[in-house]
Each structure stands twice: as structure tokens, then as C-alpha cells.
């Protein structure tokens, strides 16, 4: 029997996780509705003043996306950990990093991507328009995978611990700060008419940096958790 290549292993993991997620569609719907509801609460709390809403909009939407990612992190490894599949997965001949990348990608497709697709609508609620809507979507498209990758480290470190929900927030939120700053900054600067290229490229740098380090750290953390 020939061993599957790394690419095939990656595709296998992604397909499996996507299939599993498709069978629990209500989970996905929940994270999407969470974002919609939280984003709709802010105008009710702050008041309908359009200039104020436009000012806080980028930050609010970004923080909402961040929280949605955080809440969905529990799903990333827990189910596989509880039924013992994860332990079997550590034994595959391919590097564990490949598996991590696959799982994180599948997680992003069902937690980050819906937020990205929904963001233009949510932006309209806050009176964003034209260019800034595009920048919001683009910044979330670059930023949410980064959040998923960084969050995976926290999810792996707290795997199976009591009170891991709060703990993962405590560990991961400080690591999300740069992404939040650049992501919301991109939209704010496009609203101010300064141009969002600088912020977007820094966001891209964050993405590349976390792509280079986060799956590797997650793999180490998974091995520690399952030893």
C-alpha cells in the first residue's frame, strides 16, 4: 500500500472536517447569528447617530468577528479529542502540521468565511459605504484565517481542561490584538480617505507570520496535550 502524500493527507483532513461540519449545520448558523445579533446590539446601545456609528463601526465589527472566532474555537479539536480520533491522527505518517493546517482551514470555512461574506451587510448597518465596505470585507478575509490559526494554539493548549472556555479567551485575546488593530485600522483609514494599503499589507504580514509559526506551535501543543 503506498502512503498518501502530504497533499492528499491535507485534502483528506479538510474533506472530513467539512463533511462533519456540514452535518452540524446548526453550529455554523449559531456563530453567524451571534455576529449579526451582537453587531445589531451596538447601535441600540450607542444610539442611531450616523457619524458615531460610522466611527465605531469598523472596531465593533472587528471585535464581533474576533469573539465569534473565539467562541467557535471549542469546536476545533474537542470533538476529535473526546472520541479519541485525535490520538489516532497523531500517528499518521505525515507531519502533524499538515493535519493542523487542514483542520484550521476547515474551521475557518465554517466560522470565519460566513462572517466575511456577511460583513458588507453588517457594514451597511453602521453606515459604511463604497470603498470602506470593500476594505472591511478584504480585511476580514485576510484577518479571520489569522485569527483561526492563532486561536488554534490556544485551543490545543487548553484541550480537555476544566474551564477551558474562559482560559482560551484569556490566552488568545492578547494574541489577537495586532490583527484587531490592523484590521479595524484598515477600514478606519479608508473612511478617513488616507488609503488602507499600509494596514492591509501589515495584516497580510500578520497572516504570513502566523501561517509560518502558528500551525507548528499548535502541533507541539497538541502533542503535549495528548501525551
Amino acid at each position: 500500500m503506498s502512503q498518501p502524500s502530504m497533499w492528499e493527507a491535507l485534502r483528506g483532513v479538510v474533506r472530513r472536517d467539512l463533511l462533519l461540519a456540514m452535518r452540524h449545520r446548526s453550529d455554523v448558523a449559531m456563530s453567524v447569528f451571534f455576529v449579526v445579533i451582537v453587531a445589531s446590539l451596538f447601535p441600540l446601545g450607542v444610539g442611531p447617530e450616523p457619524t458615531v456609528l460610522r466611527m465605531i463601526g469598523p472596531g465593533v465589527l472587528w471585535v464581533t468577528a474576533l469573539l465569534a472566532c473565539l467562541l467557535s474555537l471549542g469546536r476545533l479539536f474537542t470533538a476529535d479529542y473526546l472520541d479519541g480520533v485525535l490520538e489516532q491522527m497523531l500517528l499518521i505518517p505525515q507531519p502533524l502540521v499538515v493535519l493542523v493546517v487542514g483542520k484550521v482551514f476547515a474551521h475557518w470555512v465554517f466560522s470565519g468565511l460566513p462572517v466575511v461574506l456577511l460583513s458588507p451587510l453588517l457594514g451597511l448597518q453602521f453606515g459604511l459605504g463604497g470603498d470602506s465596505l470593500g476594505v472591511l470585507t478584504l480585511s476580514l478575509l485576510l484577518g479571520t484565517p489569522t485569527l483561526s490559526m492563532i486561536g488554534a494554539i490556544g485551543a490545543a493548549l487548553t484541550l480537555g481542561l476544566r474551564g477551558s472556555g474562559f482560559l482560551v479567551a484569556l490566552l488568545v485575546l492578547p494574541l489577537f490584538v495586532p490583527v484587531l488593530i490592523f484590521g479595524a485600522g484598515a477600514v478606519t483609514s479608508s473612511l478617513a480617505g488616507i488609503g488602507s494599503e499600509a494596514n492591509l499589507s501589515l495584516l497580510g504580514a500578520c497572516f504570513l507570520l502566523s501561517l509560518a509559526f502558528a500551525p507548528w506551535a499548535t502541533a507541539v501543543a497538541l502533542r503535549i496535550a495528548l501525551e
Binding site: 492578547p174 490584538v177 501589515l202 501543543a221
Partner: peptide, 27 residues
């Protein structure tokens, strides 16, 4: 080991935050 991994991740994070907030402040 878990806290060691997190400590190491944090070493990368703090300088990034320092520079990102500086950048943010100029904005």
C-alpha cells in the same frame, strides 16, 4: 510544557503589539 509553549508565543507577540500600537497612534 503547555505554559512553556504559551510563554514562547508571547515573546513574539509583545514586540508586534508595541509596534502595532505605535503605528495605530500615528493614525
Amino acid at each position: 510544557r503547555a505554559s512553556a509553549v504559551f510563554a514562547l508565543v508571547g515573546v513574539v507577540n509583545v514586540p508586534i503589539i508595541y509596534f502595532s500600537v505605535r503605528w495605530w497612534n500615528t493614525l
